[in-house]
Design a protein around this nucleic acid. Structure first.
Lengths: 332, 332
DNA sequence: TGCGCTCTGCAAATCGATTTGCATCGTGGG
DNA sequence: CCCACGATGCAAATCGATTTGCAGAGCGCA
């Protein structure tokens, strides 16, 4: 079950040593033009396809990058994966994926597996792991990009401008003269909800408005959750004139609640979501939302990684914040 | 830059040869209980983590599976990826991904790259490649699951029951006494549109109805396209009482066209989509559609692959058809 | 002429595991 | 008592590349 054509076969055919073939094809040492031509031709004629596995054993480089996410089927991550993929594939790197469901053991398992497989770099979305776990499993020399907001920074890092996004959304409402604005966040924790909440608060304060405690409510990140809490908001004596939501699903729930209550959108209630998932443009009326550019996010992780893989950068950890963009449709 | 702990280190510590360590840990030959214990302990104490790269070089097995898709960011494929991932990860296999954008050269490039990386198996969604390309690049012994409908079968294969799905959708309408049913397919070609069309036709014929040529229209697979062609249908002298669409986006476009024309859904126009994308349940009214179970699809590809990887099956190519399921919501 | 330097090329070691072939030691059956 | 065989362990070959060290040839310069 040996490989069909090896470097020795090429060497034999070209009448040189395997050493010379290696040098000729890799260019790590110079060979004469004549030899180079003979080697090239021999390789060509035999259909030589070098074995990356053998090469990796010696060089310790696999041209593979690990991507660890909670769930590759969750719409955000495929776009990230694609962005990463597009950046690194251009330099011949492959992406190897692990879905962890946010389980700590699974996260560690994939991390360990990928390190042993000697991936050249790792992009990690982790929610259950801590810095010391990371350093225990991942050798210091392996580039690692961390893509979650909760870890202290000992690695390169990419994040979304959550606060800036909801700040822009809030300002968009304020600019229309709307001041009674509520915010629907996610569950307490280190998810994006409270970072987005912070942007809302800041915009309100900057406008000289102090958001009342009652104007800030929490939900899980689902349509049903959004429908429920916004339904409750609308039932109050003084319902808000607008809601900014921590994600699009909540916002879609808000739309449903408004419709159920007979409250016209956006004239009586303006709604703004966050993420710009596919469905945002498909619901009726189409949702005004803050685009969370997952693809761009992925590209940035790829850039940070590639800069280190190709020795273009060798300094202290860097952080990239991916900007968001307000997409104005019909709900605000 | 050598690996920290190698098999020789373990051997030294346990006072045996590397051979014995290998046999002890792999169980390929028997070792005495005492030796086994000593080896285990030595490995443990040193924190031995075997190198899959070295192992692969000798064994030709990498425990990696390649997944080649047109676009990992397209909602269908992440779910497939997850299904595949879940099945094979249980046996220690990793998924390595390539997005090709349906480009022939890119498809071939990833195929070649993965084969050279000596993946143990490949799952391929290809639209631009032909059987002979495949056999040229992929060694006969590498298990390959083909997941598109247009290739002649020389490999294991997984497909969706496209015809069955739209047949069920059509019958669902017929059962309500609706007979004026139109079908919106995709562009001519080997996409799923015409396989879905076939199911519609069959159901109509089985009911003794001969669908008129005018009842079958084509669109691209987008909302805009669906809106346009269904708008045209509704403007006819005798508009259909229902439309079955080749995918959900078209169906959502149909919804928009109906709303624009003031045609109530489902009372004056019933609409059924195909795929059950996330947005299907989020639009208003929620879309009745045929679920195309991508996750299950991925699991099936994983099963076919794993059966061969683990030598559980060694016969001629098999085909698995993943059943669809009618999801009745509010539009039909 | 002689010294040193660059250019070219090869032999051999190396990466870290797996696998084959051989040797040794008991043990039980004939 | 002897032979066959299973159990156990090691030395060495192997997978297919890369890299190091060495050597010969050719050239320029003092």
């Amino acid at each position: 079950m040996r490989q069909s054509v090896t470097i020795s076969d090429v060497a034999a055919r070209a009448g040189v040593s395997p050493t010379t073939v290696s040098h000729a094809l890799s260019g790590r040492r110079s060979v004469s033009a004549a030899t180079l031509a003979r080697v090239r031709q021999a390789a060509d004629e035999l259909g030589y396809r070098p074995s990356p596995v053998a090469s990796s054993l010696r060089t310790k480089r696999t041209h593979m990058v690990g991507l660890i996410v909670p769930d590759i089927a969750n719409p955000f991550y495929p776009a990230v994966a694609r962005g990463l993929h597009d950046v690194i594939a251009a330099d011949g790197y492959y992406t190897i994926i692990g879905s962890t469901d946010g389980q700590r053991d699974t996260e560690l398992g994939f991390l360990d597996g990928m390190v042993r497989r000697s991936v050249d770099g790792i992009v990690m979305f982790s929610f259950a792991i801590e810095e010391k776990d990371l350093t225990k499993v991942v050798p210091a020399r392996t580039p690692l990009v961390v893509a979650t907001g909760n870890l202290p920074s000992g690695h390169d890092r990419v994040g979304t401008d959550d606060a800036g996004g909801s700040e822009a959304a809030t300002r968009h409402l304020l600019a229309q003269g709307i001041t009674e604005i509520a915010f629907v966040s996610g569950p307490k924790g280190n998810g994006p909800g409270d970072r987005r909440l912070a942007g809302y608060t800041q915009a309100m304060l900057a406008a000289g408005l102090a958001p009342a405690e009652a104007d800030i409510v929490r939900s899980d990140y689902t349509v049903a959750g959004g429908r429920e809490v916004v339904g409750e908001l609308l039932g109050r004596r003084r319902p808000p004139r607008a809601v900014v939501c921590a994600n699009d699903l909540i916002a879609i729930g808000a739309l449903e609640a408004a419709q159920a209550a007979g409250v016209p959108v956006p004239t009586a209630l303006a709604v703004i979501g966050f993420d710009d998932i596919d469905a945002a443009s498909l619901v009726a009326p189409p949702l005004t939302t803050v685009a969370n550019p997952a693809y761009e996010f992925g590209r940035q992780t790829g850039q940070l990684l590639l800069d280190r893989l190709l020795d273009r950068y060798d300094g202290p950890p860097r952080t990239v914040v991916v900007p968001t963009r307000l997409v104005v449709r019909a709900t605000a």
